[in-house]
């Protein structure tokens, strides 16, 4: 039996599941747009971008389903039928969140690679292997995940900030603001050990980040700069 060590209050995980679905919607719109771009241009940067957001979306979906199973379905089934499923909550949580972490961290690596215009596939593979080793060998995979995500998001945010200053367009600004919110959200998740309020703050910032990203995509789709 694996014990569930939750970061954040358990009731909040159901709200977190809804939040993850919101992020999933943004990721799916980006996947559709980058697949269109990939079909038209056949450029590798769009391939990385498509895979990055597919993985991010998959990660969010797994996280959402895990939260619903662990914090809603299992407690309910166990209460009604005394099935003993409660003993497997830890395993579900570990597998679900493990998958979420692997998917989203590879997604962030590919996103960093495509936004920073790294053309060499060997560097992409090296970065992915290093990040996975770091997570796999860490004794606290949540902490290692958040710190790695903060580092990668920091680089991505810096790049989209530079891009926003160069382009001076509304969409570029919204993309920058969205990544800035996601970056801040991950910092708040790390600070959750200092005070639980940071977890709520992080979740709100993340929700805002996904919302702003969806607005940026809507802007692109309707052709407003």
């Amino acid at each position: 039996m694996v014990a569930v060590v939750v970061h954040g209050p358990p009731w909040f995980f159901l709200l977190d599941a809804a939040l993850a679905f919101f992020g999933l919607a943004a990721a799916m719109v980006i996947v559709l747009l980058s697949m269109k771009a990939l079909n038209l241009t056949k450029e590798r940067k769009f391939l990385y971008f498509t895979i990055a957001f597919t993985l991010t979306g998959m990660g969010l979906f797994v996280r959402s389903v895990t939260n619903v199973i662990v914090f809603l379905i299992i407690p309910y089934v166990d209460k009604v039928m005394s099935s003993g499923l409660r003993d497997f909550r830890g395993t579900f949580f570990f597998v679900g969140y493990g998958l979420f972490i692997v998917c989203s961290i590879i997604g962030y690596v590919l996103l960093a690679v495509s936004t920073m215009k790294i053309r060499e596939p060997r560097i992409t593979i090296l970065l992915t292997v290093l990040v996975l080793l770091l997570l796999g060998l860490s004794s606290s995979y949540f902490f290692a995940y958040y710190l790695t995500a903060i580092t990668l998001l920091g680089f991505i945010t810096f790049h989209v900030c530079k891009n926003c200053l160069e382009r001076k367009s509304k969409s570029a600004f919204l993309v920058f603001f969205s990544f800035l919110l996601q970056f801040v959200a991950h910092i708040a998740f790390v600070l959750e050990s200092v005070h639980p309020m940071f977890y709520y703050f992080g979740s709100i910032a993340l929700l805002g980040g996904y919302g702003v990203l969806l607005t940026a995509l809507a802007n692109v789709l309707v052709g407003r700069r």
């Binding site: 936004t115 215009k117 989209v160 969409s171």
Partner: peptide, 12 residues
């Protein structure tokens, strides 16, 4: 046009 705007928004 749409794809150019998409790529430009992310700085790709």
């Amino acid at each position: 046009k749409q794809l150019t705007e998409f790529a430009e928004a992310f700085g790709l």
